[in-house]
């Protein structure tokens, strides 16, 4: 037992995730990521403002582009917000803000957290989902996200110098690998839910059917917003069904 610097009183076996997941330092780090992106946005907009007059682009068009981007992202942003709220109980606010809201995506981050929990012999959100399991899952998903950023940092200058033909040189492999990898990951994680209980099995079916219906309606009615909201709607329907099935059982 070496003496250790302990700043927050965690309890490795406690299942009170919020007690550890909403500590001030985690909030500070999350707000730090927000601040960094705000600063990046300001620096980029300023650089564009300087360059625009030289390419015959009036300031009015820059403003219009900014507004068009802002308006176009209201729907998708609120859809992300909705899904993020559903995951608050699982990860706490700071982790959800950074991992689900910003850097990552709902599906990849939840999948990573689930894989990490399983690697410790626990279930995400289950009775053995302790503060210790949460911390390891949070670390693993953050490291994975860091690798994404690291490869962007390394590859972007390389591709700019002319290596951009990598995707063109072998389009078949480049298209197949991510498709097969994502389908493999999501299939494996979805079917892993089935043997857990009959309620789990029903909820997977309800959630899948809700998504199918939303996407079909979106296509038939040409409703783009429905496609954006499909994930949030499916989660809401399935969770509600889960609540009634659980309390009835």
């Amino acid at each position: 037992m070496q003496p250790q610097l302990i700043l927050a009183a965690g309890d490795p076996s406690s299942t009170n995730i919020w007690a550890i997941a909403n500590t001030p330092f985690l909030w500070f780090c999350a707000l730090g990521v927000f601040a960094v992106i705000f600063i990046q946005t300001i620096l980029y907009a300023r650089a564009a403002k300087v360059a625009a007059p030289h390419v015959n682009m009036p300031a009015r068009e820059l403003k219009e582009s900014f507004r068009a981007g802002a308006v176009a992202s209201i729907g998708p942003s609120l859809a992300v917000v909705f899904v993020a709220i559903a995951l608050l109980a699982l990860f706490g606010t700071p982790a959800v803000l950074v991992r689900i809201g910003l850097i990552g995506s709902v599906s990849a981050e939840t999948a990573s957290a689930n894989i990490s929990a399983v690697s410790m012999g626990a279930t995400l959100g289950g009775a053995d989902y302790t503060q210790q399991v949460f911390a390891v899952a949070f670390m693993a998903m953050s490291l994975s996200g860091a690798m994404w950023m690291l490869s962007t940092l390394i590859l972007t200058p390389i591709m700019k110098k002319g290596g951009k033909s990598l995707a063109k040189r072998n389009p078949a492999v480049m298209a197949l690998i991510p498709t097969a990898a994502l389908l493999g990951a999501f299939s494996a994680l979805t079917f892993a839910e089935l043997p857990k209980s009959s309620i789990h099995m029903i909820l997977v079916a309800v959630s899948a059917a809700s998504m199918g219906l939303c996407l079909l309606l979106a296509k038939v009615l040409h409703a783009k917003w429905l496609k954006e909201w499909a994930l949030g709607i499916s989660i809401a329907i399935a969770i509600t069904a889960g609540y009634f099935l659980h309390t009835a059982a």
């Binding site: 599906s107 994680l189 959630s207 899948a208 499916s234 399935a238 609540y243």
Partner: peptide
């Protein structure tokens, strides 16, 4: 209610995510 949500968020999410990615791919 939070406990129930936490217990069932994964199946409620994954079914939809799988269908969404199948359709998108």
């Amino acid at each position: 209610v939070i406990d129930v949500a936490r217990l069932y968020i994964l199946p409620s999410l994954m079914g939809a995510v799988l269908v969404q990615s199948i359709v998108a791919m």
